[in-house]
């Protein structure tokens, strides 16, 4: 119970961040002609930002099932790496059925917080998933129903919440480890290239470019600064 509660608390900032992000997803879905309950069902069954955005674009045209599958696989392939990564950190209590159930909640942010733990108990992971999931569903509903009521300045400021959370996850580790700082720098710089070079930003979706940049940076990191043999998750520290 203690672990569950600790997870619950760790999920609060993610939930707050999701509330604002899914709020804009709700607004977008309505503006593209979806109903409020369709937007909410998409959020409650899928729980992913980039994938859902890509899906809206495809769903407004009939019959593009293959395009849907291909776009989801490329946008979401990063989740496989996260699942593999986290499978190395879970306790023995994380049995098969719990993995099938809780794997549903493997979002970027839930993964990032869980990965910062020394070992991940299923109770902690379950607690961690609750508030982000509610935030994601509730934000979509609110965005779809009352999208344009909040002052624009409040809405736009809230969009930073998710990135503030990312900073708080990365900064303490990057501060202690040159290697992590280098990997973070490479991934960010590479993604700026994808963003600012016109041909790349026009032809490569953000889901794919995020995966490409992250994989390239992590491969470079693994080649240049391999983690120490005896201790898998502690690399050379400053």
């Amino acid at each position: 119970m203690k672990l569950f509660l600790r997870g619950l608390r760790s999920g609060i900032p993610i939930g707050l961040g999701y509330l604002s992000v899914s709020f804009s997803f709700g607004i977008m879905a309505i503006s593209m002609g979806f109903t409020w309950w369709q937007a909410v069902i998409i959020s409650m069954t899928t729980v992913t930002s980039a994938g859902q955005l890509a899906a809206l674009d495809i769903m407004i045209n009939p019959g593009q099932y293959a395009a849907m599958l291909i776009s989801q696989l490329t946008v979401n392939v990063r989740y496989s790496f996260m699942s593999i990564s986290l499978s190395q950190k879970v306790t023995e209590k994380f049995t098969g059925i719990k993995r099938w159930l809780l794997g549903f909640f493997m979002t970027d942010e839930i993964f990032a917080v869980a990965a910062a733990e020394d070992e991940v108990d299923p109770k902690f992971f379950a607690g961690l998933s609750v508030i982000p999931y509610i935030g994601w569903a509730l934000g979509t509903l609110l965005g779809a129903l009352v999208g344009n009521v909040l002052p624009a300045m409040v809405m736009s400021a809230l969009c930073l919440a998710i990135y503030g959370m990312f900073l708080a996850i990365v900064a303490p580790v990057a501060r202690k480890s040159w290697a992590v700082l280098a990997v973070v720098g490479i991934a960010g710089a590479l993604h700026c290239v994808f963003y600012f070079v016109p041909w790349l930003s026009e032809n490569v979706s953000s889901g794919i470019s995020i995966s490409v940049c992250a994989i390239a940076a992590a491969v470079l990191g693994a080649l240049l600064f391999p983690v120490r043999e005896e201790n898998g998750d502690k690399e050379v520290t400053k």
Partner: peptide, 29 residues
């Protein structure tokens, strides 16, 4: 060792690629 190192770095790399440069445009200003 290579796979272990890759898996150690991937979460930070993903977060960084998601943040840069998108975070600067998140507020619309």
């Amino acid at each position: 060792r290579f796979v272990k190192s890759f898996l150690y770095y991937i979460p930070y790399a993903v977060l960084s690629a998601m943040t840069l440069p998108a975070a600067f445009y998140a507020t619309g200003n």
